[in-house]
Amino acid sequence: MTQSPPTQREITPADSLDCSGLLCPLPVYKTALALGNLQPGEVLELITTDPGALEDIPAMARQRGDTVLASEDRGSSQRFLIEKGTQT
């Protein structure tokens, strides 16, 4: 196998979504719509400012079968890289 694990490979998001200023449930709702336009294995970059997103986005990914490759708390904002799973 020559494929690197996800944390080591270079990640190029297929799409980016800015949910700054939006509260629950809108970041989850809009992320689900954005992931719906991607192919399995493609990555969505997501920016949020709702502190609840740090729990909500991983929970959403767990429920949908997607993978959060990166989750970054920048204090006033959060950034995620979400890889679309095959189930959704």
């Binding site: 449930p25 689900a32 959403m60 429920q63």
Partner: peptide, 12 residues
Amino acid sequence: LILASTAVSLGW
């Protein structure tokens, strides 16, 4: 409405 729209966003 928030809970239901979230649930379907989760694939439920």
